[in-house]
Computed example of a mutant assay.
Amino acid sequence: MTIKQAMVLAAGLGTRMRPITDTIPKPLVKIDGKPMIDYSLDALAEAGVERAVVNVHHHAEQMLEHLRSYTRLEIIISDERERLMNNGGGLAKGLKLLDPGDVFVTNADLFWIGEPSDRPSNLRRLAGFYDGNQMDMAMLCVKLEDTTGHNGKNDFNLANDGKLSRYREQGPKPVVYAGAIAMNTSFLDDAPDDAFNLNIYFDKAIARGRLYGMMLEGHWLTVGTPEAIGDAEETIRRYRTFA
């Protein structure tokens, strides 16, 4: 299955990235010469996505200018300049700009490298893994040891049947949420119009036994502070050397 539409969450303030984000939005901070959001957009385009909603707030004009120049897929803007909606509210608002149906959800400041060249990409695999008959969300997950820049904490336990539950030390395989989801837009049909955290819907899916996870292939990076830029770029160089 090919998922042809997506939502990229890109409206955060990037407060931990100050002073860099005093003058530039976090998704446009360059890592190894490439704006962070372009890692996400390129992965979506490679997976067959044709159009993506991107929400904007902080330094929105810079975001709009950059996104106008991105040509690999159609970009639709969800404008949050008047009111920042948190990740859940931003997603619910943005999904209204897409057709009802299956969709990817990704983050503008989380990305991965080192996917095996002889296998489908992580997002193509996630689209194939997602089954709306039994899943509310299919989440891309990664082992803690395959991350750079993360806070060192696991998010979920992944059972043998693919179901996810909130992390507990004595639970099955511990994993980190890698910032990509396949889902149907209808799962957020009952979402409030106000700002809210997407964790509400993670917990809703868990309670219904319908939150599933699939393991990422490669290495996952998150860049939350100015100091983390160097670590991310060193990891990228290391993977390029061994490619």
Rank of each mutant, 00 (worst) to 15 (best):
K4W: 10
K4E: 14
L9R: 03
A10D: 10
A10V: 09
A11W: 02
G12K: 05
L13K: 14
G14H: 01
T21R: 01
D22R: 06
T23G: 14
I24L: 11
K26I: 13
P27F: 04
P27A: 06
L28F: 06
K30T: 11
I31A: 03
G33M: 08
K34D: 13
K34T: 14
M36C: 07
Y39T: 09
L41Y: 01
L41P: 00
D42T: 01
E46I: 10
E46L: 13
G48R: 05
G48S: 08
R51Q: 11
A52V: 06
V53G: 01
H58S: 08
H59F: 07
E61N: 14
R68S: 15
S69K: 13
T71F: 10
L73A: 06
I75Q: 03
I75Y: 03
I77E: 06
D79H: 07
E80H: 11
E82Q: 10
M85D: 08
M85G: 07
N86M: 14
G88H: 05
G89Q: 06
A92H: 12
L97S: 04
L98K: 04
P100H: 12
P100S: 13
V103H: 04
V105A: 10
W112K: 12
I113Y: 01
G114C: 06
E115G: 07
E115Y: 04
P116L: 01
N122L: 07
N122D: 07
N122K: 08
L123R: 04
L123W: 03
L123K: 03
R125W: 11
L126P: 01
G128A: 09
F129P: 08
Y130W: 10
D131T: 13
D136F: 00
M137Q: 07
A138R: 08
A138L: 09
L140N: 08
L140V: 12
C141R: 15
V142F: 08
E145L: 10
D146I: 04
D146A: 05
D146N: 04
G149E: 04
H150T: 14
G152P: 09
G152Y: 12
G152T: 11
K153T: 14
D155Y: 09
F156H: 05
G162C: 04
L164S: 09
R166G: 10
R166Y: 12
R168T: 15
V175S: 11
Y177C: 15
G179R: 03
G179E: 05
A180L: 08
A180V: 03
L188E: 00
L188R: 00
D189Y: 07
D190R: 02
D190T: 06
L198H: 00
L198R: 03
L198D: 02
N199W: 11
N199T: 12
A205G: 01
R208N: 13
L211G: 00
G213A: 06
M215N: 03
W220T: 09
W220H: 11
V223S: 00
V223H: 00
V223N: 00
P226V: 12
A228T: 10
I229A: 00
G230C: 13
G230Y: 15
E233W: 02
E234S: 14
T235L: 12
R238M: 14
R240W: 03
R240H: 03
